[in-house]
Structures are given as C-alpha cells and as structure tokens.
Design a binder for these strands. Structure first.
Lengths: 332, 332
DNA sequence: ATGATACATGACATCGTTGTCTGGCGCCGG
DNA sequence: CCGGCGCCAGACAACGATGTCATGTATCAT
C-alpha cells in the first residue's frame, strides 16, 4: 500500500479510501491511484485490515461437517457457500469424522483465525466447552444435530416426524412385521429417528416390543450383516426401515443377495443419487440439505449482523418420496 | 495478549514466547502465563501474527472446485484436507460452477486473504491472468485439468489412456459399432477422453468416421436425449462410452427406458456409488480422487516450503472396473 | 472583503502479534 | 575480585491496514 501511495504520489490513507470505495477522493486522484494499483498488481490485504477495522470482521466463517466428502454435507456446504459468497464471506471447511477430539481442535483452529462465525455439526457429547466463545459473542449455528449443554441456534431435519412418516407409510401398505436398522445410539439424529418410528408403530396399535430393532450399525458392512440375520430369522419382517444412507445400502445388498428385493419392503432415511434407478426404486425419507444450508446461512448472517434474539431451533421438514420399495405389499 | 501479560505480571513478549512454545522462559513463569491464558480464555490471533511473522504465512490455502457438492470434488477436497490439517493449514473451499468470471473473483478473494497457496480446477480459457501472482511466488497447483497460458504444477487423471482402455475393452468383447457421448468440447478433460477413445478405435483398425460422436452434453437430460436418439437410429451402436458421470446416468436411463440395458454395452468414465448395484452393474473407468487430492497436497506443500523446481504435470492413472455392463457382447 | 463551510488529503496512533535488541542477574574461571 | 557468559525478560519498532483528527484550499453567503 505504501508503494502504491508513493507511486501515485498520495498518502496511504488516500489509497485506502480508493480501494475501499470510500467517498472523499477527487475523481482525478482516484484514477491516479487506480492506475498505480494496477501497475503494481496491488491487492488489498484483508487480514491486516480486519485487525483495526470496526468490528474486526475477517469476512470468513468456519464450517465443520462430518466429512466434506459426504454428499449430504456437500449439499449443505454448497447452499451455505452460495449465501455467504454473496456477502463476500469465505468458508473454511473441515471434516470431523465423528471425532470429538477433532471437533475441539478444529474449532480452536478456526478461533485462532478469528472467523466471524461457526456453523457446525456437533459430535462431542456436549458442546458446553464453547460456551465462553459463544457468550463472548461468536455467532454459532448448529446443523443436523442440536447442541447439548449450550443454548444456540440450530437447524435440523424433522427426524422424528420423518421416521414416523415412514412407519405410517409401511403400515398403510399393510405391514405389521416391521424392523428397524439404526445407527449408533450416541448420535442424536439416530435416536430421534428410532423414537419417531417406534412411536408411530405404537400409535397404530402394534406392540413395539415385537419390532426387531438393531442399533449400532455404522457402515454398509455391519448393516448388511444385520439385515441378513434379520431376514433369515424364523419370523422375518415384511418391511424394513433403515435410518441412514449407508445402512440403506447395506439393507439393499442384503435383500438382493437373498433375492428378496421385490418381496420385502424398504424405506430408507436420506435420499441418494440413483435411488430411482434401483430395482425396485428405493422409497426414501428425503432430507433437504440445500434448505438446511440456506437457513443456516441466514441465521449465521443475522447473528453476525447483531441479532441477539433468543436462540432457536429451526426444523426443516423431510419428505417421503415413494419409488417402489416402500410400496411393496407384505408377502404372506 | 496484553491482558494476559498484565494478569501474569509479565511482558507481552514473554506471553508470546509461551504460547508459541519458544524457549527461554523459566518453567515457573511459563506456568504463570499458562494459568493466565486459561483464566482469560485467551486464544492466539493468527491473523495478527501472520502480519509480522517471517514469511507472512497465514497457514491457509484456497481450494477452487467445480462444486463442493460434487462427490468427485468432495473426495479430492477430503484428501487435501487430511494432508494439510496435519500441518495446521486450513482450507478455504469454493465452487466455480464452470464460470470463468467466478474463477477470477474467487481467486481475487483468496488473494485478499493472503492464502499461502492455491489449488484449483481451471475453468477460464486461459489462466494467464494469474501469472503475476504465480511469479510473485504464490504456490499454485492445478487439478483435474491442466492450466493454459501458464507454467505451473498440475495433477490430472490419465484421461486419454483411461478412455482408450474403455475402447480396447469394448473392442475385445467383440464390439465394432461403438458410440461416444461427451461433454462440452471446451472442457479439456472432455476432449482428451474423446481423443483417447477414438485413437484406440483407430488402432484397432475401425474407421473412426463410422463412430457416432455426440459432444456438448452437460447434464443427465441432454445425455438421455442424445442416447435415445442414438439407440433408435437406423444403425444403432452395440456399445456406448460416456465420458462423465452425469452423461453415464443419462445413458443408463436411456438404455433402461428402451429395455436395452442388458443388450447394449456401456462403459462410463468416473466411478460412482452403487454402480455395482445397478442391473447390470456398470463398468467404469474409475478416477482416483483421493490420490489426486493427496498428490496435490504434497505438491502445494513442497512449493510452500520453497521448492522451486520446474513445474510438472503429475498423472494419476485411472482404472477399469468391470461390473457387467461393459462386458455385454454385441447383440447381432 | 470576510468568516463560515465543504471538501480533499495526509499525519499519526492503533489493531495484536513477532523480531530484534538491550538489560539485569547469577555463575564461573582466572 | 572482576570480566565474561548464559539465561530470562521486557522495551520497542514493525507488519499492513484503518479510524481519527488536523490542515489546506476553494466556495459561498453576507
């Protein structure tokens, strides 16, 4: 900046005014300065600017996702990015891998970079450890899962209702012998989906104690095994609900390997690419990651802009998409 | 920092030494300072530090991808992140959407944030406009596509050889009436794949002029239409090669809608989730995004660390994964 | 003509940190 | 007993920008 000022023969403050489009510079000087910036390939240093600038905003936020390679997270990321880029805010993205230690480390790394806000999927059992930052006015929005031990904004899918819709749908198609394949019980969304599913079954007058529930499945392989075991038991279910993407894949493989894919109904939580191209098409409870991302962006921006209303949880509705697998009638 | 220093009753430089783990502080003072940082919830401000620190490193890099919601990009992103997080480097990620204007704007935004390096998928017709930055010693690594108009490191998939492997595979299974469904010709990878595919056909002694080539397909819908048109023409191909994910999906839909999915062979460039669960399984030329990401990370780190060897293009081999669709024999 | 007013501009302190340099103190060897 | 050395610690400038304030000049109303 100094160099530009010298070249243009003006003070550095004037250069600052020009590059920041502040008023109070004559058109002539402005042109001279612009020519100088051009000539020297000058580029404003935002990091230095944010040191003194009012509010000390760095125009960047931190985003913590289960993994940036997870398509669901990718959609959220994209929607967030679109909304924030418009405001000139850049996004630091990181993957958590369900590791509470990593969660803390990454948050710390973002804090050190003085991000203007944090959008995150909580992993650790409690997020109480960020209370100091939060109350120190660091905007935070939790996504996908509600935080524990701290009052903050959250944007989540309607997990319970979504799962209950799946149950209702299967029951409406005549099923009574349902089964549930679920994720680790320490994941909040997993337990909510289970609750929603079982409660709906209860409401339909079916004894939930008769429903086989397999928890703790965390990948395709374990889901596959659990599903096979279930389907080859002596009183196998006529319909399966899988609480998550990978588990759905495992269930699909199990059904196919036993030749039951056209006989046993299946509804999975989470939509996925090519679900409609399967044989049969897979009925799913679709989440709306773009809506989650967009809402999270709106909330974090509002907080950055000073909104200090009481924290609130925003719920994004899920949607049942019938494609065939969920409409198969019970087979006996 | 000042506050911490006061509370601990030491000078700010001593606090700096402690939080940066520099030597020359007695154990007693160190403890006192650490207690103070704890009490005040002090967190080092890296942005301020990088202002004066030698080399002015911000410990962050910019990553430009077609879209963060694209699974292929996601894998690259993840691999990069893993390698960089180890070194304490954070990643700004942004989506380009095939928009050259956006490419320039985003690069400019990253430059303003003084990233230590840039990893990017080039979109614009030429990247000559970043020559000033590059020669000013801003490390840059191009991924997926080689840059035009600038000498810089690049990490790309072996597009030509990959496509030629697909052609050879189909020919080996007896096909002579092949067809090519390709992306926009202004995308470098697309033309390379076409070249590789056609050259291999030529080498096999088949007149490439007889091969229907459809370019300019950019999504599932256009690919679907092109494929249907091709398959319902009077001398339809017995095998199709699709140059990219979405085009493969379009081709799959076309084949299925015409009831030809077990009759006409298909090989797609790019692997995708559930390819093995299709009917038949889809044979693909798989890229290795994790390897691309890892290599890109190694290169950018080396450059950041001062490696000033001549720029080089690194080629990551692709892999043909047979799953059924590519092994169907010609049907007449 | 004169004081008031508006506008263009630059000097300077400052943001939070680190690099450099200097100072005080204890210890050692001669 | 003294010079020299090593260790700990702080004072101070500097990084690249911006906020504040002062200054100079042209313009305007009276």
């Amino acid at each position: 900046m100094k160099n530009v000022a010298d070249l243009a023969g003006v003070g550095i403050k004037t250069v600052s005014r020009v590059v920041n489009n502040e008023p109070g510079v004559s058109e002539e000087t402005r042109q001279r300065v612009l020519r100088a910036t051009e000539q020297l390939q000058y580029h404003l240093d935002m990091t230095a600017g944010s040191l003194k600038r009012s509010g000390r905003k760095t125009q960047s936020i931190g985003l913590l996702l289960p993994s940036v390679s997870n398509p669901f997270s990718g959609e959220i990321h994209r929607a967030l990015e679109d909304a924030l880029t418009e405001r000139g805010i850049a996004v630091f993205a990181s993957s958590l891998d369900d590791d509470p230690e990593r969660e803390k480390k990454l948050i710390s790394a973002f804090l050190g970079r003085r991000v203007d806000g944090l959008v995150l999927t909580p992993i650790a059992r409690s997020q109480a450890y960020v209370i100091p930052e939060h109350s120190r006015n660091l905007p935070m929005v939790f996504i996908d899962r509600e935080p524990v031990g701290i009052e903050a904004d959250a944007v989540v899918t309607d997990n319970e209702t979504g799962a209950s819709k799946a149950a209702a749908h299967l029951i409406r198609h005549g099923h009574t012998r349902l089964a549930y394949l679920g994720d680790r019980t320490d994941i909040q969304t997993a337990t909510k989906r289970r609750t929603g599913f079982l409660e709906e079954i209860g409401r339909a007058g079916i004894a939930t104690s008769t429903i086989p529930v397999r928890n703790g499945l965390h990948d395709e392989e374990t889901a596959l095994r659990a599903a096979i075991e279930l389907l080859t038991s002596e009183n196998p279910p006529t319909a399966i609900f899988s609480s998550q993407n990978l588990i759905t894949f495992g269930a699909m493989r199990a059904l196919r390997s036993l030749g039951l894919h056209h006989k046993v109904a299946l509804i999975g939580f989470d939509d996925f690419t090519l679900a409609d191209m399967m044989e049969p098409g897979i009925t799913v409870i679709a989440q709306h990651p773009e809506r989650i991302g967009k809402l999270a962006a709106e909330r974090i921006l509002a907080r950055i802009d000073g909104d200090d209303g009481a924290p609130k949880t925003y719920i994004v509705p899920s949607e049942l998409i019938p494609r065939g697998s969920g409409e198969l009638p019970p087979l006996n």
